[in-house]
Amino acid sequence: MKWSFSNDLPIYAQLIEQIKTGVATGAFPRGERLPSVRDLAMEAGVNPNTMQRALAQLESEGLVYSQRTAGRFVTGDEERIGEMKRSLAHGHIRAFMAAMNSLSIDREEALALLEAEYRKETGEDEHSDM
């Protein structure tokens, strides 16, 4: 999975966000074992302590759990994951709304544009064997 970081936010916060996204997209499948802290840190190119901090936070939120010697696992709890997905989606939606606002595009126009884009995507799928 691809890690990307911005400069002005704390790294551990961004790690939490990206791991959550990874769980949502299935890059970290539910119920499956996560790579070790060191391996994750190497993958992401970050300090292992920072990665540890992020994982500890995710543990306290119940998204991951650790088993003594076996390592860390993504929760199997579908509901929890669903909740998290929705929360992430919520974040993206608010960001979208803020962007539309700054462009002075009102609710109706925004929804219409959104509809059109979705239709275009499914429309392309129908005509995909050209």
């Binding site: 970081f5 190497m42 300090n47 292992p48 920072t50």
Partner: peptide, 28 residues
């Protein structure tokens, strides 16, 4: 990457550098 992979909780690493942007993410 080598610095991260050799991370040892009993050791400390001091990196003196100008190239802060590249190195920031691996620092405590």
């Amino acid at each position: 990457n080598t610095i991260i992979s050799h991370y040892n909780p009993e050791a400390a690493v001091l990196i003196s550098t100008h190239l802060i942007a590249d190195v920031e993410k691996i620092l405590d």
